[in-house]
Amino acid sequence: MTILLNLERVSAGYGSFAALFNVSLDVKNGETVGVVGANGAGKTTLLRVISGLLPPRSGRIDFDGESLAGAPAYRVVAAGIAHVPENRRLFPRLTVEENLRMGAYLPAARKAFAERAAWVYELFPQLQARRRQLAGTLSGGEQQMVAIGRALMTKPKLLLMDEPSAGLAPLVVEQVFALVRRIRAEGFTVLLVEQNVRQVLDVVDRAYLLETGRVKLAGTATALKQNPFVQQSYLGL
């Protein structure tokens, strides 16, 4: 498998505060990779760096043969990386369909809007019924569908998902992970960041464990599940 995304010794931070130290990570085509860790481990910062919302202090970010370190967010999207941000970050006062339209904002995606929207509605039939409703009035699970649908509108090569289960009821969390499995089954390459270690390890191929801004452990999901350190500190076994 070819490597789609490769991070090499990436460091980043906010002001005088450093949040990531020499993080190296790769995602191969077709893989679902998880980044897990506790609050404040630097997971969200990592995604913000990849998606161009925060320029890295140092290090390389290569995606599909292109260097993306320090590229503005809209260029990262154009390169084929879509971001489902933490807490969904929908446009609450736009309708479901307008949110999808925003996902297809790039000129190339705009032309294919009707076709892509039909495909997203096929994936999430519930959204079709609510397409004229304001996104802010949907339930948490539905909002997550809109957020994922919005990201899929560009037909990305890589989908970044930031804490898709954050702030949702346990039942809805189950639904969200079912969504992740479906996205995976559709053949998308996914980089998933989560606090919910147990559930993530059930849906990903490989994972990286972040602790205070550094990669502490990396390996296949099965290997991590059996790792004594992970079992003790994160799985509560």
Binding site: A82, P85, M102, A109
Partner: peptide, 20 residues
């Protein structure tokens, strides 16, 4: 749409590909 999304959430608009 671009400007409305910027007004609601600048980061999310940028993530959607808007050159804010």
């Amino acid at each position: 749409l671009a400007l409305e999304s910027i007004a609601e959430d600048e980061d999310a608009a940028e993530s959607a590909g808007v050159d804010v």
